[in-house]
């Protein structure tokens, strides 16, 4: 049976490379045939904002969107999202504005491994 990995990331989109580490792990896992779930928590939710246009820096929003297209389930904490002034519809294609109770719980329950990317 295909093994499943869930990645929780909690660092914002630009202040550190953490979200990029999360997407690189996810992408390597997809290439190796694993099922991957990702959950954005705390400041991590900033990485799912639609329309990021970093000049010369990696575009983590675009990377997440590409992962979603490859079947990676991406959800984030709505409380963290609205606390930072984001509204539903501002997220990238394929990301679900959800909750710890429904989405992260489901992810963890079906996972063989949980990886936390934060500092």
């Amino acid at each position: 049976m295909t093994k499943t990995m869930t990645i929780i990331w909690r660092t914002g989109s630009m202040m550190a490379m953490d979200p990029n580490v999360a997407t690189k792990l996810a992408s390597a896992a997809v290439r190796k045939g694993y099922k991957v779930n990702m959950f954005g928590y705390g400041e991590g939710i900033t990485a799912v904002k639609k329309g990021q246009t970093p000049k010369r820096f990696p575009n983590v929003g675009a990377d997440l969107e590409a992962l979603a297209k490859q079947g990676v389930a991406i959800a984030l904490c709505e409380t963290c999202y609205t606390a930072r002034g984001f509204q539903r519809g501002e997220e990238i294609e394929g990301a679900k504005v959800g909750s710890l109770t429904n989405d992260l719980f489901g992810f963890v329950a079906e996972s063989d491994r949980l990886i936390t990317v934060a500092r």
């Binding site: 792990l25 992408s27 390597a28 063989d112 949980l114 936390t116």
Partner: peptide, 19 residues
Amino acid sequence: ADYEGIVELIMEETERTVT
């Protein structure tokens, strides 16, 4: 190690990941 190697370690060679 590249990221494939790190994923292999996490998924196949160990049972837990602790940050």
